[in-house]
Write a protein that binds this DNA or RNA. Sequence first.
DNA 1: CGAGCGTTTGAACAGCGTCAAAACAAGTGG
DNA 2: CCACTTGTTTTGACGCTGTTCAAACGCTCG
Lengths: 229, 229
Amino acid sequence: MTMSVINVDQLLARATHSRPYLEAGAQDPLQNTIEATGETVSFDPNEEIYAEEDLSLYLYKVRKGTVRICRLLEDGRRQISAFLVPGDMFGLELGDCHSFSAEAVEACEISMFDRRGVQALAQINNSVAMRLWELTAQSGRRLQEHILLLGRMTAKAKVATFLLSLADRIGVTELRLAMARHDIGDHLGLTLETVSRTLTQLENEGFIRMRGARAIDIMNSSALKRLAA
Amino acid sequence: MTMSVINVDQLLARATHSRPYLEAGAQDPLQNTIEATGETVSFDPNEEIYAEEDLSLYLYKVRKGTVRICRLLEDGRRQISAFLVPGDMFGLELGDCHSFSAEAVEACEISMFDRRGVQALAQINNSVAMRLWELTAQSGRRLQEHILLLGRMTAKAKVATFLLSLADRIGVTELRLAMARHDIGDHLGLTLETVSRTLTQLENEGFIRMRGARAIDIMNSSALKRLAA
DNA sequence: CGAGCGTTTGAACAGCGTCAAAACAAGTGG
DNA sequence: CCACTTGTTTTGACGCTGTTCAAACGCTCG
């Protein structure tokens, strides 16, 4: 990974300039001001973007590829709280340190914005502050949904929900999974073996079709939804 | 439950007045401006504060008692994503509708603030906007921790973690549980029977002592922490 | 072609859920 | 003050879902 650091003053300057434009009705001030300053950086598969306890220096946006947000326990257990796909932002946390790590699942391109610059911008530009809140609130809602899944669903319902939400977020029913069974298991609170068994079961029952382990076609979306409930 | 509605203009007026004060270094603008306008309301045990899909009209703060945030599935399964204790705020969500319901676990006193007023205030007062973001970010971090618990912990570790976090948030090692075994189970992704069995097991092993079902003393906090990990 | 992962599949096991009953607590009315 | 009711908690027996351990299979890439 290589990158050049973004200048805070530059950010603030852009913010000031963009103000009249924003007041004229721009939809996403964060898009318009900050994103333009972001430096896009490449990460290799399984490369760490930041670790737990790392200083929180940047706000990130996925351009290409898939990112996982993880917590690790000493004995090797891992929980992936979310997968992020192009368009998703991450890295915005309370305090100066990350409480979770972020890793590239596959080769990724990720835009990085100076966190302090963004926060300074939020101080003077209310639309930016509101947008930051929206981002955080949206991720909160997803976490709530995931809590329901982890706490109250069977393996079958978990996998079905996972496939559907992935299809929904990407916008296609022919999925190419970027992540290994192991990653899916650590996301759904299952072992990789259970994920594998459940997928073959879903295939045998006609809900999905697999063209190789990573390419999954959803054959009957509404029937899958019934499983997921 | 009875209450009088809060006036938006009143809120905005207070916000304007409080500005010089805030700029002089107030710690929590939300505290100083909005909270002063809140109407405190009483709820009975198990009374619903708001339902899923209800219009999101207020921002709430727990004064006394305990609140649970729930999701329900058609077949009766329930997931409690959080318990809230005095000092916690809730009800702040993306969009105009709630995606979760909130219920009083025991008799509660809760302050309510007009949501639109708060948001209007956030538009003109940046400290308020930042505070709203902090609230959301903090609840997000708790949700992440809970995801780790649900996905990767055994029943024993779940219950141990629950007791410790409750003790930590209340600030005492002699707990009086406001909620039933059933509520705890729906929070930890367990059945009420498993919660009960696990508690008696923890008592037999000397980690806790029970003086009646709802009064639990943590005898060995550091040993309990080791279980929780 | 062979080495190294990732995936699938199998068999045995265990943790937790389910069902059922009993013990307990708290409130109600006689 | 006691009998009765209702809801919560505990305890037991049993079974199922998902884990663990192990082996075979199949990609992908030197």
